[in-house]
């Protein structure tokens, strides 16, 4: 419990630093939300009035403090552009992003774990070399390229899956899944490559450990040794990187969301940045920061599940 509290306390300074920096940076960017909203035909009086209405006439630190005060009462404000409450915009888009993230990671792991284990079984063997080459191949393919190829094959050629778009899970779970398969696979591809390599190299190290030799000396079959003895100790880097990926993906995967026209956090963030829709940007920044800290927290918690020694050390502190 103390551990959880400490992690939550971490969140506070992280949020301060991150939101202040993002507030500063987006305000320092050239461009002006008022011009974006009013367009080139706006008169000076209208510009001034709107600036006042949106409280953009105050200095940046003052605006930041205002924003903080509002945050403290649970208000993220509303979009300058379409007046949608920021919280609502995030709530509408977060499910897509979360689903995409979970599905992509599930695909990546479903493929990477068996591949990594098999590759580590015989380092430099044929399977290892094939997976290494495949992994680097996947890494080298930019995901927009992969998306185009996947759409061509699965949507246009075979008509198996939709080419783009999104159906809410609550609306139609099957359609929801169908819409997310291609984007998730696109996102998963590069992760598969990374995960396979990570798992493989840690497995190779683990398999050289004495306790593996002991397990072999016990007469256990290879499969059992790989899965029961070697796998869990070899997942630390994997879990760490998955955590980082989750943090990253909470911010959305802009390119994939854009290509597949998915209403996720990534497109929301990028379009808000372009529109200088400061409050929406701030809202997504808070979300991403919380996401990162949460993902890290989960990673830390999972360490102690993975390694009983860590739990005992934590219990002592």
């Amino acid at each position: 419990m103390r551990f959880v509290r400490r992690q939550l306390l971490h969140l506070v300074p992280v949020l301060f630093v991150v939101t202040f920096l993002s507030f500063l940076l987006i305000n320092l960017l050239p461009g002006d939300p008022v011009i974006t909203i009013l367009g080139p035909g706006a008169t000076q009086e209208h510009v001034t009035a709107l600036r006042k209405e949106l409280a953009l006439d105050e200095p940046i630190p003052v605006r930041y403090v205002h924003w903080l005060k509002r945050i403290a009462t649970g208000h993220l404000g509303q979009s300058y552009v379409n007046r949608q409450p920021v919280l609502e915009a995030i709530r509408q888009r977060l499910p897509t992003t979360l689903e995409l993230m979970i599905l992509a990671e599930a695909f990546a792991l479903a493929l990477a774990i068996p591949m990594g284990i098999l590759a580590a079984r015989r380092p430099n063997g044929i399977f290892d070399r094939v997976t290494t080459t495949t992994a680097f191949g996947l890494l080298a393919v930019p995901n927009f390229m992969l998306a185009v190829v996947l759409v061509y094959v699965f949507a246009l050629h075979w008509h198996l899956l939709p080419a783009e778009g999104y159906t809410a899970l609550t609306q139609n779970p099957f359609e929801n899944l169908r819409h997310l398969v291609l984007p998730a696979v696109t996102l998963a591809a590069a992760d598969v490559a990374v995960y396979v390599r990570l798992l493989r190299s840690e497995m190779v190290t683990t398999l050289q450990q004495d306790f593996i030799t002991l397990a072999r000396a016990k007469g256990l079959p290879d499969r059992r040794i790989l899965l029961r003895h070697a796998f869990r100790p070899s997942t630390f880097s994997l879990v760490t990187v998955i955590g980082l990926n989750l943090g990253r993906l909470i911010g959305g995967a802009f390119i994939v969301e854009y290509i597949f026209a998915l209403p996720g956090i990534g497109t929301l963030t990028v379009s808000s940045i372009f529109n200088r829709d400061y409050l929406v940007v701030q809202g997504t920044v808070v979300l991403i920061a919380v996401g990162y800290v949460l993902a890290n927290f989960l990673v830390d918690v999972s360490y102690s599940f993975l390694d009983p020694r860590i739990k005992d050390v934590r219990a002592l502190t």
């Binding site: 450990q209 007469g219 003895h229 009983p308």
Partner: peptide
């Protein structure tokens, strides 16, 4: 053969026991 016929005790029990089990 390993187990019911031959078995082995290793040098360092710290490393030869599986710490995760």
């Amino acid at each position: 053969v390993r187990g019911p016929e031959m078995a082995m005790v290793f040098q360092d029990p710290m490393t030869s026991l599986n710490p995760y089990m």
